[in-house]
């Protein structure tokens, strides 16, 4: 089975190819109690569940069905690369929510040709994610719940940033995959997360959300903190230990975060941010004892 939450990251990577605005709907429609919704993306499924709207769902993508127990019994309608137009249409949805991925461009067009409303919700940048959640809430009649969730995230963000501002800022890198080496770039919501935590992303210079970089670049960039969220089973501290010239390694500030715990675009960015901050604090505490931190 594919590693947990890899597809979430995949969705984010795919949406990087999209060049439109943060959220776009075919036509605003009034909320209806009998609204039949199909979600084609796990982050959007999670948003619907977080907004207490799972009862509106009549079908979900494969990954959502496999990983979200609240929707496990619903019909599956394919995945990012193989959405089933027929399966979606057969469910007679009023609304299909998707991320604006290149892979599903034709799929979205065909749905619209068949008269199905398609709501595209981007999930690359921090503001896109929040705007997408509000747009989704507005469309399904959960505006207040969406507003509260968005405000909770913004509030946590402000509080973490305020606390971080009391400490000197440090340079950091967030690893999403080791081989080949992919890191978080300037466009991703995770860059905003690093910034709020008082960390300057050394890969922020790259405009794409998840640039593929070289090991040499990483050594030369010399981050003070490495947050490793890759799925490689080799322990992150052990993996990076051979590069002692990187300050993060020399100072034992290699933070292992299981994939998906932080790198998960969805409705709970506040929890993700707090998880990451806790992991870094843990690394700070243990850095003098000669070992990096590993978040279980």
């Amino acid at each position: 089975m594919i590693g947990s939450a890899r597809l979430w990251l995949g969705i984010a990577l795919v949406a990087a190819c999209w060049t439109g605005a943060s959220a776009a709907s075919d036509a605003p429609a009034p909320a209806a109690p009998s609204l039949r919704v199909v979600s084609m993306n796990p982050s959007l499924t999670r948003m619907l569940i977080a907004l207490d709207a799972q009862q509106l769902l009549v079908g979900v993508d494969e990954y959502s069905g496999d990983h979200e127990s609240a929707v496990a019994a619903l019909p599956r309608v394919g995945g990012l690369f193989n959405p089933s137009l027929e399966a979606v249409v057969a469910l007679e949805p009023d609304l299909v929510v998707v991320v604006p991925s290149v892979q599903q461009r034709d799929f979205r067009s065909r749905l619209r040709e068949l008269g199905v409303e398609v709501l595209e919700l981007a999930s690359i940048t921090f503001e896109q994610l929040l705007a997408s959640m509000q747009t989704l809430g507005d469309r399904i009649g959960r505006s207040e719940a969406a507003r509260e969730r968005v405000e909770a995230i913004r509030s946590t963000w402000r509080e973490v940033a305020r606390e971080a501002s009391l400490q000197p800022r440090r340079s950091a890198v967030l690893i999403v995959q080791r081989d080949p080496l992919y890191v978080v770039g300037g466009e991703s919501y995770l860059n905003a997360m690093l910034d709020a935590a008082g960390l300057d992303n050394v890969a922020a210079e790259y405009p794409e959300p998840y640039p593929r970089v070289s090991l040499e670049w990483l050594i030369a960039a010399g981050p003070q903190v490495i947050i490793d969220s890759s799925a490689d089973p080799v322990n992150a501290v052990e993996h990076w230990a051979r590069w002692e010239s990187i300050p993060a390694v020399a100072e034992n500030r290699v933070v292992a975060v299981p994939q998906g715990l932080v790198t998960l675009p969805g409705p709970y960015l506040d929890r993700s941010l707090l998880t990451m901050v806790d992991a870094i604090r843990n690394a700070d505490r243990t850095s003098d004892t000669g070992g990096g931190a590993r978040l279980q």
Partner: peptide, 14 residues
């Protein structure tokens, strides 16, 4: 490749 997620897909492609 068709069963893989996008990160595995990128690794396979490379």
């Amino acid at each position: 490749a068709s069963m893989a997620g996008l990160t595995e897909g990128a690794s396979i492609f490379l």
